[in-house]
Amino acid sequence: MLAIPTVVFAQTMSSPSYNIENSTLDGGGESSASSNYRSVDSISDIESGTSASTNFRNPSGFQPGAYPGIPGQPSLVNTGGTLYDSLDFVVVPGSGQQSDTTFAIAISDDNFATFQFIQTDDTLGPNEAWQDYVGWGSGTGERVVGLQPDTEYKIRVKASYGSGSDAEDTESGYSLEATATTSGQTLSFAIAGVNSSELVEGETTTVTSTATSIGFGLLTIGDGSPNLAAQTITVSTNATGGYTATARHDQDLTSQNSDTIATVSGTNASPAAFGTGVTTGRFGYHTSDDSLCTGTPNRFLANDTFARMETVPYEIACDSGPVTSQITYILYKLVIGTLQPAGDYQSTVTYIATATY
């Protein structure tokens, strides 16, 4: 049987002109009960007791809601000024938060005309993602990814004592906003000459080069002396995947009579010692990058390791992350033997740098 709570009026209502009999008014306090439950009436007071049975539990009286405070203003930073697809953020809980308070972070690139939420894996998504302060990286914070270059972003944070579908029952308002702008994608690549008498990878240059040419000059056939020249390539990029620089030529060193100067036996994949006993001619290159990104990374680690230049581009420098003014030396070595035909020999080398964003 279900009993309906009753309200009892206990205050008599009367005046000099009339009297309403059996009229009472009070603030409640009556109770209704059955074998299944008991309900205590109360108005405006906070009741600490509860009513319960084997089927349900019902706190009695007026129950005030519990809400966390509004979080403090978060931080949003383009650390180092080079982040083009990410930004660093830190949640600031503010005062009065409990240890189990969770936070959701809204992010927008149009001043919150539209917005998304930072997810627990720091990507972006349409739904709120709730984590406690530790989950969001505490005072160190985390890095939100998947952003667009050259774009201003704003974030704001709200708090809750719940999570998932229960979070909205105890949500706070949003914090003040924090603003930061992602950088543009950058890649700079410069070639420079190297003076003669410079020590490069265990060899001393004999020729001064420029950014656009290497002139070995007039060489004596059969003198067997090594002729050495070098260039540098300097790379800067904020690409998170780093960069790769390659080199290729259009032909072997070739004269106007179509004679060619032979190349070394080593290849980019397997460089080898330059060797001795040159009868015609021999030409090869060496890179100072001791940690390449393909094949055997340290294949050019030893100084006397040379490869032949080919018409297919091969790796001569690389890095797996952002770099600033990273310099690599490319050393060229040429020896002319007694049987090399006279002539003016030329070849064009092309350097290519590619960033991985």
Rank of each mutant, 00 (worst) to 15 (best):
G184P: 12
Y133P: 13
Y133C: 14
Q116C: 06
E128Y: 02
T179K: 15
T181Q: 15
Q119H: 09
K158F: 00
S99A: 15
S138M: 12
G139A: 14
D110Q: 10
K154M: 13
G162Q: 12
Y133Q: 15
Y161F: 14
G137L: 09
Y153V: 03
A159M: 05
T170P: 07
V157N: 08
E142Y: 03
L147T: 01
Y153K: 08
G184V: 00
F115N: 14
F103W: 02
S163W: 04
N127I: 02
S99W: 09
F112L: 09
G135D: 09
A178C: 03
D150P: 04
A159S: 09
A106V: 04
A178P: 07
D121V: 08
T120D: 13
T140P: 08
S108F: 04
D150M: 07
V145R: 09
G139D: 13
Y153R: 02
T102K: 15
V157I: 02
T102C: 09
F112N: 13
Y161D: 04
E128G: 06
G173H: 06
N111C: 10
L176C: 04
Y153W: 07
F115K: 15
T123A: 15
V144C: 03
S163Q: 05
A159H: 01
P149C: 03
L176W: 01
Q98E: 12
E171R: 12
A104Y: 01
D150N: 12
E142T: 08
V144K: 08
D166S: 15
V157C: 06
T140Y: 03
K154A: 11
T120V: 01
D100A: 12
E177F: 02
T102G: 08
R156I: 00
S175Y: 00
V144I: 12
